[in-house]
Each structure stands twice: as structure tokens, then as C-alpha cells.
Design a binder for these strands. Structure first.
Lengths: 206, 206
DNA sequence: AATTTATGTTTCCTTTTGGAAACTTATTTC
DNA sequence: GAAATAAGTTTCCAAAAGGAAACATAAATT
């Protein structure tokens, strides 16, 4: 680790009640809901989608698991988009979630070049993933190739100095307080150019 | 302002070329892409998902149309969400966007309690909104009421000490390096409790 | 280069889906 | 309330999906 030390006892208050991912997505119910919402009978839905009345019935009653093909007919015919179909029933989250991570007490993932510290580990299904990372001095990334992934990334230098490389642009030096926001599917890479380890904060969203 | 000063000429390179396309979802290609991206072989993916190697191969080569059940195994096993699977054909974004904001050169929005500095002002249609804010000493927010809005928020204390108030939880003191992640539709509020101004970084996403 | 090992594809067969029609249950209409 | 009609379910079978193992191809190893 680097410097600043304000270690408190680990503390993590969190309330996660999104009953999420493991949630077996009641596709049938959801579909019925949508069809009904559109005021359609099975027969009408059948005509719009090209799927047999019986098939629709079976899907709604969870008797069969529709193929991707069938689902495309569904979404096209009823003019709904897929995320909508799979979207959780829109719970209104009455009591909000919160997760505090004390300095240096996140979940650590060291590599030869970095020491990533994942913050806010207690909440799942987050829109953002915050990290605090130490970039080892004079390191030049594992340098296999550009890092490239979905989503967008925001990066702020907390301490030290780094060089930020990215496709299509010239490398740029960033010092304490500087920040970058970029599309993460654009190849990117970091290096600590100074003699000391750099510390950065970064947040990804996809 | 507070302290740290490393002012460079303002610099902002950016290229925005988001072209929302409505394309015919090549599920197979998309899946292969994802699997490869995770560095998995068919065998490994098979173990993770519980689907036979042969089945995966056929799906990737568009020889069969997976059932919803199969797709759930896929998304659970590979830890991807469904919209992601169906996400548009992954245009390879040849020129990605990037926006650098030098220390203290963001767009400033002062209020009686805060001094907000919006970072990454050059990109529109961002998933995240990053801010750096100065919280004035002993200020107690404009205190009209809870702040409450859509989305999620991540906050990290850069300097000083603040108290973070939120509905359903006890107030908590945060010092340099501490961070919170919370649902922003849960009422929340900040105060700088120490004698000096505090500086925080926060990022919102909705 | 030949052998071994790993990765991906195809075949063959069982299980499941999807559709037509028969059937049951609700809703109108007379 | 009975008859007629509409809406939804179940049956039956053809067609398609899913899995085990054989097969083919690519990557390592010797």
C-alpha cells in the first residue's frame, strides 16, 4: 500500500433487497401481463406473433420454455423489446440500499501491475463498479494488448502520476486531480511513469 | 478552492459517434464473442452453464435456437445479463470517445454549501456523471429536505471529513479514502463537520 | 514431423417444443 | 337459463432442441 492511513474497523452497512438475479424470471406471468396490458386475446396475439394459440398458452403457463426464435416472434409481434420482457416487475424500492467502504478495506485483487481494490462489494446488481487501484511504479501494464470491454469508464488520479494510453489518441499524462472519461471498448491502458506508485479511482458502468 | 494545484491547459479530446442501430441480433456470434471475451473454451463454458459442449457449439453456429431455459443457464453461468446478450450487434466502435478534465478545470457550479465541479463535460449521452465537489466547512446542506433522485450514486472522500446522512440509516462519518455507494432515490444529504472544507468525488448513474 | 492433447463440430438418439385440432371453461346473446 | 360464441387449455404428433459420444481439426509436446 502507499500512504494515507485512516483505518477504521471494517464497516459495511448494506441492505440489498433486489431479490435479483437468482430470481427465476417468471416469463409466463410477465408475458401474460404484457398481453393483457395490450388488451389482446391469445388468438389475437397468435395472429400478431405467428405463434400458435396453444403455444402461447403453454408459454404463459410455464409448460414449455420458448426457443429464442419463438421469443423473437413474440417481441417483434407484440412490439416489445427484450429487456422489457425480462425486466424485473419494477419494484419501487422503498428502503434503498447503502454500502460504506472504509479506506483500504475494499476487496483486494493484486496483479503484477496493479492492486485493485473493489469498493461497494456488498451491493449486487449495481449500475457502477467503483475501484481504487494502486498502479505500481514504472509498471507498463501486463502489456499483452489493449484492455477493451463493454461500457464506459471514469478515472481520477488520487496520487502520483500516470500515463493514459488509448487507441486513436495520443498518450496523455495525468497527475493528481486529473480525470478521464472514455468508452471502454476503445482500447486503453495505464502506466505509472513516476518513481512512486500511483493511486487512482475508477468507476465503470455498462 | 482548496489546495492541490497542478493546472495544465484545459484539454478535451472527444469523439461521439453513437449510432443506435436496430439490427437482427446474431445470437450465435454474440455468444461466441462473450465466451471468447471471458477467455473460456466450449468445455469450460459447458461446465459453467450446465449445457453440453455440443449444444453450445450449435448455438454459436446458429444451428439451433436455444430455449429460454438454455438461455437462462447461459446468462447465469457466464454471469451476463440478458439484455447484454441481446444487445445490439456490438458495433466495434472504431473511434471511441474520450474526455480529459484537468485538475480544477471542470465546469463549476457553486451553491452556498457546495462548489460542484462537473467533470467530463465534453461527452453527451454518458452513462455516468462525475463530479468533484468542495463541501464548505461546517455547512449543513441547504437543508430544505432530503436530496432524492433516480439512479445510484458513488461517493468518495478526497480530503477532509464529512457526515453522510441518509434515510433508514444512522448518519456516518467519512474521512479521506472512505466511500459510499447508495440508491439515490433514498433521501440523502451531506455535511462537512470539520473546520476545513472537505473535498469529495461523486459519480451518479441512472 | 509424429504423437499427444485440447478444442470445436457432427452424428445419433432422447427429450422437448410448436402447431392443428379436440376439448374445457368462461362470456355473450337470445 | 339454454344456446351460441369466444377465450383458454390439453392432446397428439411432427419438428426442433439438448446431450453423449464419435469425429475432425487445431495446438502443443516430444
Amino acid at each position: 500500500m502507499t500512504d494515507q492511513q485512516d483505518i477504521y474497523p471494517s464497516m459495511t452497512i448494506s441492505t440489498d433487497q433486489s431479490s435479483e438475479n437468482i430470481a427465476p424470471i417468471k416469463l409466463g406471468d410477465r408475458l401474460k401481463e404484457i398481453r393483457r396490458g395490450l388488451g389482446l386475446t391469445l388468438e389475437e396475439a397468435s395472429q400478431k406473433t405467428g405463434l400458435a394459440r396453444s403455444t402461447l398458452s403453454k408459454i404463459e403457463n410455464e409448460q414449455i420454455s420458448p426457443t429464442f426464435q419463438a421469443m423473437q416472434k413474440l417481441t417483434n409481434g407484440l412490439d416489445i423489446n427484450i429487456p422489457q420482457l425480462f425486466a424485473a416487475p419494477k419494484k419501487v424500492n422503498t428502503t434503498g440500499r447503502r454500502d460504506i467502504t472504509r479506506n483500504d478495506l475494499g476487496k483486494s485483487h493484486p496483479t503484477s501491475t496493479y492492486e485493485h481494490e473493489l469498493l461497494a462489494t456488498q451491493l449486487s446488481n449495481k449500475k457502477m463498479m467503483p475501484f481504487k487501484s494502486l498502479v505500481r511504479a514504472r509498471s507498463f501494464d501486463d502489456y499483452s494488448d489493449w484492455i477493451r470491454h463493454d461500457g464506459e469508464e471514469f478515472l481520477l488520479v488520487l496520487k502520483g502520476e500516470i500515463t493514459f494510453f488509448s487507441e486513436y489518441y495520443e498518450p496523455v499524462n495525468l497527475v493528481e486531480g486529473d480525470s478521464v472519461y472514455y468508452d471502454a471498448n476503445m482500447g486503453h491502458m495505464l502506466a505509472s511513469v513516476s518513481e512512486e506508485d500511483a493511486q487512482i479511482l475508477w468507476v465503470t458502468a455498462s
